[in-house]
Design a protein around this nucleic acid. Structure first.
Lengths: 226, 226
DNA sequence: AACGTAAATTGACCTCGATCAAACAATTCC
DNA sequence: GGAATTGTTTGATCGAGGTCAATTTACGTT
């Protein structure tokens, strides 16, 4: 598969991401030194669990899914990353071995940053180390949030929580478009697609309208109470 | 509640922990500057979700449990930390607000390290930053492991996995003592105590003997297959 | 050792969500 | 535009695990 250097558009996506926002231009440039971009089709594997990985990844367009495989071949999503999100940084601290699989969802552009370079830079520049710590912390939090939701909430409650996460605080009524297919959302929430579908229809009774990928909320409080 | 300075024994536990193992004595001393110790009884709250926290914690003896509360008052364990483990470091990177609750399990001694001090030191000393990154990464991994197990394994399989995690690689037969009560293990595995009990009795058919807190494995492969 | 309390087990029941199958909707591709 | 493919919904069934209640076991205390 072909890899290219970053063009200016790719660079703009990276620099606009959460990870780079507090870093100086010089620091960012140093991190992006030697970065490459590749195009992927649906289901292309980015890395395999337990195999060596010497990059940190960033979604430039499309989506990436990080998941684990069970003995029986079933898959469990750990996280889904949209454009601008960095992932795969864990391997950097664990002997450059991936602890999960990652694949592209839909056709996606993925940047690879050299993890050895990044580590070296983190040693020299406290602000880069700081940015890395914040990244690790956010990702840890994401996993903890998922774990807590899985253990505390029913399927409709998890869906309600997901919707509320996209709804600005003030508004009672609100609508947005799902950033991916429903089967992806189902995986992210730890549900079978059928269960997600049923959860949506349970929420219909609480003022949630679903038409294709469009979600409308008519009564925020009702959702919060759910 | 009374807090004391570290005595030499406390210090030995801290320095023997994973976090400090690669750090120089000077670095460790700097981190422990101003650290205090407190004694806690069963169920003492160490910190509350969403409240300010300006320490990083370390278990000197006993156990600490980190958990989230559901709207209905139900609790979901995020992690259980034994002696020598550091926790509560997430708040350091999230505006000094706890993202979960923590309490002592049984009577425990807990050290508090000043997180502002630790942050400042991490800026100055790359090896301390490195140790922090590894800590964050391990904790993130723990949460991801839990999430994947919850989603991929049944109760007996999770228990089998827990047991195998305590069994050295070579041996077919093996025994060990649970480091805490079964209801704690149940919580850690995301199970009701009854479900843990039934899981143990299901494993009995695969060569696992349970007597009080003692666990005996007679056939490692059978467990792995489960 | 015996008591009292807390923990663990067992049984009965029930709910939630997985799975399978089929109908239906929405795409992509000629 | 229509066929073919893929995604989504719905229905029916089933099993895992939660909950409640009743015992039984283990443990700390005197």
């Amino acid at each position: 598969m072909k890899t290219l250097r970053l063009n200016s558009n790719d660079k703009a996506v990276l620099l606009g991401s959460r990870f780079f926002e507090k870093l100086s231009a010089a620091a960012s440039d140093a991190i992006l030194e030697g970065a490459v971009v590749s195009n992927h089709e649906e289901h292309d594997i980015l890395f395999h669990q337990d195999e060596p990985v010497d990059s940190v990844f960033c979604v430039l367009s499309g989506l990436a899914r990080v998941y684990r495989l069970g003995k029986d071949g079933r898959e469990a999503d750990i996280a889904v990353f949209p454009r601008g999100e960095i992932f795969g940084e864990n391997a950097m601290f664990l002997g450059n071995r991936a602890t999960a699989n990652a694949q592209a969802i839909g056709s996606s552009m993925i940047a690879r940053l050299d993890s050895r370079n990044l580590r070296r830079l983190a040693e020299q520049h406290p602000d880069i180390a700081q940015a890395l710590m914040e990244l690790l912390c956010r990702h840890g939090q994401m996993a903890e949030d998922c774990l807590a939701e899985d253990r505390l909430l029913t399927a409709p409650q998890r869906v309600a929580s997901y919707i509320l996460g996209h709804c600005p605080d003030g508004s009672t009524t609100f609508s947005f478009r799902l950033p991916f297919q429903k089967n992806v959302l189902a995986g992210k929430l730890g549900l079978a697609p059928e269960a997600l579908s049923r959860a949506f229809s349970a929420l219909r009774r609480s003022g949630v309208t679903v038409k294709g990928r469009m979600i409308e909320i008519h009564d925020r409080q009702a959702l919060e109470r759910f």
